[in-house]
Structure formats: C-alpha cells, structure tokens
Design a protein around this nucleic acid. Structure first.
Lengths: 231, 231
DNA sequence: GTCTATACGGCGATAGAC
DNA sequence: GTCTATCGCCGTATAGAC
C-alpha cells in the first residue's frame, strides 16, 4: 500500500467514525479520543489531517453534502426538461427534492444513515443550523424555489419561504430517525424506513405547497373562510 | 425570606439557567459549572436539588411540558365542544394544536423562547428524541389524532402518523429558531417571529392533512394520477 | 510527508467533609 | 445547604520514528 493510499484510507476512516459518533451524540458529546479509537488510529491523527475538532465536524458535514446536491440538481433539471415548454408541476418538483434522498438504495448504507441523522441534528441546532445548513444547501434550495415559483403563479416570497421551512422540518426530522414515530404508532410506522416514509411525506408536502395557489393575492397569509375560532 | 422561599427561588434560578444553556448548546455542551455561575449559586447545588446532570436536564424539559399540555388540551376540548354534535374541522384541530404555542404573549418571554429551542433540540436528538418527547407529549398527541380521525373519515393509521410526523418536524424546527430562514430569505422572514410564522404553518399543515381525505381507500399511500416521473 | 507517543494545562461531575 | 478535593478525561502541541 502506497503512502497516498494509506493517507486517503485513514482520512476516510476518521471521517466515517466521526460521522457515526457525531450523528449519535452531537458535537459536544463526542471526543476526539473516541473517534480515534473507533477509526483505530492515533489520537493525534485527526488533528493532523483536519485541524481542530470544529473543522473535522465541518469536513464530515460537507463530504456528503456535495453528493446530495448533485443528485438533487440532476433530478430537478430532469423534471424541468421533461415538462418543457411548460412549468413542471408542484408534485414533480417536490418529488425531485425528496426522491434522491429517500428512495435510492444508499438509504440502507450505514454511512449514509449516520449522515442523515447528522443533518437532523445540524438543522435544528442553534450552533450549526443557521450557518452550516445555509452554506451547504441554500444555493440549491434557491433553484428549487425558483422552480416552485413557476409552478405556483403569484405566490408571495414570504409564503414560499415558510412553506419551504415546513418541508425542511418534516424532512430533517425524518432523516434524524429518532424512533419517536415507532413509539407513537406502537410499531406500525418505523423511523428507519425512509423509503416507506417517502410517499407519505411527498403527498403531505405537495399539498402544503399546492394550497398556496388558492391564497388570495391580497391576503396571502390569512386563513380561508372556514377559519378556526381563535383559541 | 424564609428557607422555603429561598429553596424554591434557587431551584427556579437553576432551572432557568440550565434551560437557557441547554437550549443553546445541547446537553453535552453545557457544564454544571456554567449553569451554577449563570444562576449565581454554588456548583454543587444543582446536584443537591436534582441529582445527576441527566436528571436536571429532564427536570428542565418537564417543567414547561406540563403547562403546554394543559393549554393544548384546553384548546382541543374547546373546538370539540364548539363543533358538537359534528366533528370539528381539520383546520380547527390544527389551530388548537398550534395557537397555544405560537400566538400567545409568552412567545416573547425569554424563558419560553429558550424552552422552545430546547424542544427543537430534543425532538431531533438521537439521545432524547424517541424517549423524552414520547414520554411528555404522546398522551396528548393521541387525543389530537383521535380528533383528526373524526375529521378525516376512513384515514389509515399509517397516513395519520406520518402526517403527524410532518407536523411535528415543521413545528419543532420553527421552535428551534435557528436563523436558517432569515438567511435563506435574506431577512424577509425571521425565525424568531413565531406569531408571524403561525398562519403560514397552520395553512401548510392543514392542507397536508386535508389531502388525506382524497386518498383512495385501497391505495392509501400511493401518489394520485398526476404522479411524478420517478427520478 | 505520514504517523505515533507522550505531555500539558485545564476543566469535568460529583462524593464527602463540614 | 455549602465548599472543597479528587480523579479522570478533555483538546491539542510537539518531538521524533518511519
């Protein structure tokens, strides 16, 4: 084995171990020593390759973010292409957003499972949520929102962003796979069954965006006629 | 000030400080020393009152969970009462779920803001999500789901649980107030404006549940006719 | 360059003295 | 109820082996 191969190999081992541990225990719940032990390398090696702990965390997060983004971009461009010269439907766009994450075979891969849980952690974290998620994913999100604007004529920006926020929360909670739904449903639904969750989530989120079409232009965020009694 | 009063006061100070710090940095990101310093009490006092760190965390989480549950139960019973003898609408039930959390004046209270962020952290956490959330909130959730079953005839359990999952993700991400939407929207939407988010979220989630009414009984989770091309 | 062994200053939770 | 002491583990700098 050449030096180069070793280098790459050990780097990946460290990233894999860090990913597994960070996803389960969060940034502060993991020590570099634990990562080194799991990766079967020396304590100082993580620091040698990645610098301080914080930089290692970011390296872990960024590694697969790039892959996700390319899958999703590809899917988005496909549905836009296919719908030409019309705008793609809301459902197709939402499908392009979720399917690359939830329906491929990689969802059964241990590394990806860990990474998904990590996204769940990062997205709702005060420390990382605003910064890391935006940095890695916002450019692509903007393209999806552009597409949705074409599919939902006259939608207001505010409505669109909050709808995306709902999408994001629903998705990342699913990715986190916390076991909550298993408990709530007495085992009927399983949080580790992402492909089983896929169609439920797509249907739910599609409907959420579709209702923006019915918003009166002047009172975009108001509740429709059968509004509830204030509580 | 009597001993009893001091006792209660200091207990609350510790809980407040722990809440503020846990919500910002997570369980492992906070030391008992930091909590004690913020509460201006001795390091060992938290241990004296609450036992080990883990128990303190649970005490923080449970303190306001009880309050939330009673607000929501009250709201749910009000809409059921009001709709008698019919079933309440989906919108009214969803409104009863969200309004007590998002529209009251307490959302501007620092303590409650911290607690909300804590819910965001706990719900998507591997360590706590499955257990603590279920323990504190599932009994009430069951009652909301019962009500939704009446409002959505013939809905399958599986659809209902996954829809609730989407609701939960959207809500807790909003509660986490990570600043992500501020960034994405270039400041148009603000994640600390929960009452501003309220109607957007209610509309989105209501539509998500309403579409369950159109599900063909036999293919409950399938996508409707205009299904997307697989990606 | 790649990697290991070790050392260091500091802070962790909490048990036990008071 | 309060304070202190204890012991262990923390991240990381560094010296030097290969």
């Amino acid at each position: 084995m050449t030096g180069q191969e070793t280098r790459t190999k050990k780097r990946e081992l460290i990233l894999d171990a860090a990913e597994a541990l960070f996803s389960r225990h969060g940034y502060d719940g993991v020590t570099l020593r634990a990562i080194a032990k799991m990766a079967d390398v020396d304590v100082a090696l993580a620091n040698y390759y990645f610098g301080p702990k914080r930089d290692l965390f970011e390296a872990v997060f960024m590694r697969r973010a790039k892959v996700l983004n390319s899958w999703r971009l590809e899917a988005l461009e496909a549905v836009i292409e296919e719908a030409q010269p019309n705008a793609p439907s809301v459902r197709c766009i939402i499908e392009a957003y979720f399917a690359p994450l939830l329906t491929r075979s990689h969802v059964h891969d241990e590394g990806w499972k860990n990474y998904y849980a990590l996204i769940g952690y990062v997205n709702s974290s005060h420390e990382w949520g605003g910064q890391l998620m935006s940095q890695q994913f916002d450019p692509l999100i903007d393209r999806f929102l552009e597409a949705l604007k074409m599919a939902i004529p006259d939608v207001s920006e505010e409505n669109l962003y909050w709808a995306y926020h709902c999408l994001s929360g629903a998705l990342t909670l699913a990715l986190a796979q916390t076991g909550r739904i298993d408990h709530l449903s007495n085992g009927l639904c399983r949080s580790d069954d992402l492909s089983g969750a896929h169609s439920h989530i797509v249907n739910f989120i599609t409907a959420g965006f579709e209702q923006l079409k019915d918003m009166p232009e002047k009172k975009k965020t108001a509740t429709p006629g059968d509004a509830a009694a204030p509580v």
